[in-house]
């Protein structure tokens, strides 16, 4: 690999409009943040600039760790992603399954106007994708084994758009699988019922809804710019400030706002927390020993140790449970023998 290729390999996400950190979205985020600080927060131009490009945040130990993880994870993804089950394999299996169910009529909605088919597909894909993100994210918090992995993301003490890459490679794997399954379900189902008119409304090659999510500041959710929406809107869309609440160290914010783009899921399943104007929110984990959030080695290995520990405790519990059962069986057996004798 020569130099050019190497740069391309590591920085390709910045020129890919399908990625959140695409340069265009980052620029829009800066614009949005400026407008917010200047006109809503009524700050001066100078302090706006200082706040957005705060050296203490952009070059904190936590942020530097983000940058390193960004690079290292890139290598991990390169080697792991070919091993994962392919989208086509799942889509094909589901497509074939749909044929085998007699109650399902192929092309039953094929006469729907094409523009409606495309709109439906575009929305469904976005909504299903977003919902599975909510579900998996919730599991990441509620299941101890997964929380051990997801902690890496929550250990960030300062947040920048690059914090989106602050994840353990295992979480990357889980989320890739989620995406494969979500799309692998929606694509064949639409093709089967709506026929080959199925397509996607796109801008710069991206699902138009995903584009709007990114163009309206998805990068600011991992930042210290606490843009909030009207209360009614925060029931529908997660504002940057709401995701910052998700990262908050405060106990009343635990396990809130799992949603990615849509807040509806949090609202329906009772995990919604609206943004509040109570001053600065502190990010991170209060159980985390200070400094660990910037040590790469710990960030990669700690989850592995913790998983091992959880599995070990689980095994010990399982064995003792089995032993209990066995002794119970033996007792019953002995009682029976005694009875027979008498």
């Amino acid at each position: 690999m020569d130099d050019i290729n190497l740069i391309e390999f590591f920085l390709s996400d910045f020129i890919n409009p399908k990625k959140r950190v695409f340069t265009g979205y980052l620029v829009l985020s800066v614009v949005l943040a400026s407008l917010w600080l200047l006109f809503v927060k009524r700050q001066s131009l100078k302090s706006t600039f200082k706040k957005i490009f705060d050296r203490k945040i952009l070059w904190s130990g936590s942020a530097k760790a983000d940058y390193k993880l960004f690079l290292v994870n890139r290598v991990f993804t390169f080697f792991i992603s070919p091993l994962l089950i392919s989208q086509v394999a799942i889509s094909t299996a589901i497509y074939m399954f749909l044929h085998s169910v007699d109650a399902f009529n192929q092309n039953v909605f094929a006469s729907t106007p094409t523009s409606i088919i495309i709109a439906l597909f575009t929305i469904t894909l976005f909504v299903v994708d977003d919902f599975t993100k909510y579900v998996v994210h919730r599991w990441m918090h509620k299941i101890p084994l997964l929380w051990a992995i997801h902690k890496v993301h929550h250990s960030a003490k300062t947040m920048t758009p690059i914090t989106v890459y602050r994840v353990h490679p295992l979480e990357g794997v889980l989320f890739s699988l989620r995406s494969v399954f979500a799309q692998g379900l929606v694509i064949p189902s639409f093709l089967f019922f709506f026929g080959n008119a199925v397509d996607l409304y796109t801008i710069v090659g991206v699902n138009i809804l995903v584009f709007f999510f990114h163009a309206t500041g998805s990068n600011l959710r991992h930042s210290h710019i606490d843009i909030s929406y009207w209360k009614w809107l925060e029931h529908i869309l997660i504002s940057p400030s709401q995701h910052q609440v998700h990262h908050s160290i405060a106990e009343e914010h635990y396990d809130k706002n799992f949603g990615a783009a849509l807040a509806i899921w949090d609202w329906v399943f009772g995990s919604l927390h609206l943004s509040e104007n109570k001053g600065k929110v502190f990010f991170g984990l209060d159980t985390y020993e200070s400094g660990k959030e910037s040590r790469i080695k710990d960030l990669y290995l700690e989850p592995i140790y913790e998983i091992a520990k959880i599995l070990k405790t689980f095994c010990i519990k399982l064995v003792s449970l089995l032993l209990n059962w066995l002794s119970l069986l033996r007792d019953l057996f002995l009682i029976q023998i005694k009875k027979n004798k008498s």
Partner: peptide
Amino acid sequence: LTDKLDSASSAETD
């Protein structure tokens, strides 16, 4: 359609 969508792009977590 699968090629067009490129599932890897929506693998971002939060």
